[in-house]
């Protein structure tokens, strides 16, 4: 009897990878392409609505002496402006809305992913790579648009001896081309690994609890571990959003100010 219940409960526990599954909620097909509304897109829309509400209700009164909510909105804005000013300089002011949107979207996506039963948008390499590729292409276009052919001088650091050119230029090109990959994989891997770890330890808690007897007591250990991991994941969620936005400003700086 007890053996069958154990087996049943254990089979009910979601596998650690199941949380990343894309489940279509509403099928949309346009010219043979699958554009379905999925759990992922639902969360994206949710993030959009949340950020809009956060901004709208925070700034509705826009008082001279801000309340708590308004202070949060202003603090976030000030933070992003500071980041842009520090990394790009005065020419970067026009990119503040983009960096702000990027930061707040990824931040909310990462943190929302830690809610129980939620889906983490940023745990999909398709999403993070779409961001990274967009930023990559944007950087190239801005560089060429602002500096013309001179922008390709970016691949040759000033002061390079002529005999090192055959070595330095390929290295610079490879490091430049690897930017979208590192940018997207960093966020995707952090989110995915953390969530898998949380799920695995949660699975230990359930299976040890169901095992009964002394094992139920031992189950406290993975529970404590999961609590600590959760706090760590919260930090990782915030830090990764920051890193993503920060690296975007650094890359934009290379295109805008063209210095090595």
């Amino acid at each position: 009897m007890s053996k069958t219940t154990t087996k049943k409960v254990y089979s009910d526990v979601a596998g650690p990878l199941e949380q990343f599954d894309i489940k279509p909620l509403y099928d949309i097909n346009v010219a043979g392409y699958d554009l379905s509304l999925t759990n992922s897109s639902a969360w994206m829309i949710g993030i959009l609505l949340f950020v809009w509400a956060f901004m709208f209700f925070g700034m509705r009164k826009a008082e001279l002496v801000p309340g708590r909510w308004q202070s949060m909105v202003e603090g976030l804005h000030e933070f992003v402006v500071g980041m842009v000013d520090e990394n790009i300089g005065p020419k970067g002011r026009s990119f503040v809305p983009f960096i702000f949107s990027l930061f707040i979207f990824i931040l909310v996506a990462n943190v929302a992913g830690l809610l129980p039963y939620s889906f983490t948008v940023t745990s999909h390499i398709a999403v993070t790579f779409a961001f990274a590729a967009f930023i990559f292409v944007m950087c190239i276009l801005i560089g060429i648009f602002r500096h013309g052919f001179a922008w390709f001088g970016f691949f040759l650091p000033p002061g390079t001896p002529w005999y090192l050119m055959p070595l330095i230029i390929p290295i610079e090109i490879i490091s430049f081309l690897s930017r979208p990959i590192t940018l997207s994989v960093r966020l995707f891997a952090n989110m995915t690994a953390g969530h898998i770890l949380l799920k695995i330890f949660a699975g230990f808690v359930v299976s040890l609890g169901v095992a009964g007897g002394i094992w139920s007591v031992v189950g406290v250990l993975p529970l404590a571990m999961n609590t600590a991991l959760y706090a760590l994941e919260l930090i990782v969620a915030i830090v990764q959003a920051y890193v993503f936005a920060l690296l975007t400003t650094v890359y934009l700086n290379d295109s805008i100010n063209l210095e090595h």
Partner: peptide
């Protein structure tokens, strides 16, 4: 594909 399309839609709107 469905993610990227919806991402560009939602992020574009957010921007």
């Amino acid at each position: 594909l469905p993610q990227i399309i919806w991402l560009f839609f939602s992020f574009g709107l957010l921007f």
